[in-house]
C-alpha cells in the first residue's frame, strides 16, 4: 500500500533522510544502487539511504558524502536515527536494489556494482549487529521503494515485474 495519510519524504541518489509516522519515505529508480531502510517499529521512525558504491575508499574526493557509500551510509543513518528517537538495539533493516541492469562482456567491475553494493551493505549491517529482516535484491530490473514506519512494510514497484511488499 502506498501512503494515504501523511506526506511522502523523497530521498535522491547518494542521499539519505528519516521519517516519522504517519509519513512514509521513498526513493525511486534504484538500479545497481541499494536502498537501505533502518527502522524502530516501536518508535515508528525509519531512515532510508540510497547507496551508489560499496566502499568509501573508492572515493578520490576530499569531502566524502557519507550517504553514497555502503561502509559509511549505514553508520551515518544509525546516528541520525538515534538523534531522532530511535533505539539502536531495536533497529531492524530491509534492503532492495542491487540489480545488474546491463549485460556486458567486460572485465570492468563497475558493471557488476549491484552485487558488490548488496554484499557491502549486508556486511555493514552484520558489523553493526542490525538484523536484516527482508530483502529484494539482484535481478536485472529497476525498483522504486516506499517504506511505512508505522507498519514496517516496504512497498516495491517495478516496471514489468509487478509490485510487491516485504
Amino acid at each position: 500500500m502506498m501512503n494515504e495519510d501523511g506526506i511522502v519524504i523523497k530521498v535522491g541518489i547518494a542521499d539519505m533522510n528519516i521519517v516519522h509516522a504517519p509519513n512514509t519515505i521513498r526513493t525511486s529508480g534504484l538500479g545497481s544502487c541499494v536502498g537501505v531502510i533502518l527502522y524502530d517499529l516501536g518508535q515508528q521512525v525509519a531512515g532510508l539511504a540510497h547507496i551508489m558504491l560499496p566502499d568509501s575508499t573508492l572515493s578520490r574526493g576530499k569531502n566524502v558524502n557519507a550517504a553514497k557509500f555502503a561502509d559509511t551510509a549505514v553508520e551515518a543513518l544509525v546516528k541520525v536515527l538515534q538523534e531522532n528517537g530511535a533505539r539502536t538495539t531495536y533497529l531492524k533493516a530491509k534492503i532492495a536494489g542491487g540489480a545488474q541492469m546491463f549485460q556486458f562482456a567486460t572485465q570492468n567491475d563497475m558493471m557488476k556494482i549491484g552485487e558488490r553494493n548488496s554484499i557491502a551493505v549486508k556486511r555493514e549491517l552484520a558489523r553493526l549487529q542490525i538484523p536484516l529482516v527482508a530483502e529484494d535484491i539482484g535481478g536485472s530490473n529497476g525498483r522504486t521503494i516506499e517504506f511505512n514506519p508505522k507498519t514496517g512494510r516496504l512497498f516495491i514497484k517495478t516496471v514489468n515485474k509487478g509490485s510487491d511488499e516485504i
Binding site: I13, A14, S28, G29, L30, G31, S32, C33, M52, L53, L58, S59, R60, G61, N65, K68, A99, M101, F102, M110, M111, I113, N141, G142, R143, T144, V159
Partner: peptide, 19 residues
C-alpha cells in the same frame, strides 16, 4: 526500465570523485 536505474550507470565512475 526506469530512467533512474539506467542513467545511474553513467554516474558510477564519476561518483568516485564528485557529486
Amino acid at each position: 526500465d526506469m530512467f533512474g536505474a539506467i542513467i545511474s550507470y553513467g554516474l558510477l565512475e564519476i561518483s568516485q570523485i564528485s557529486d
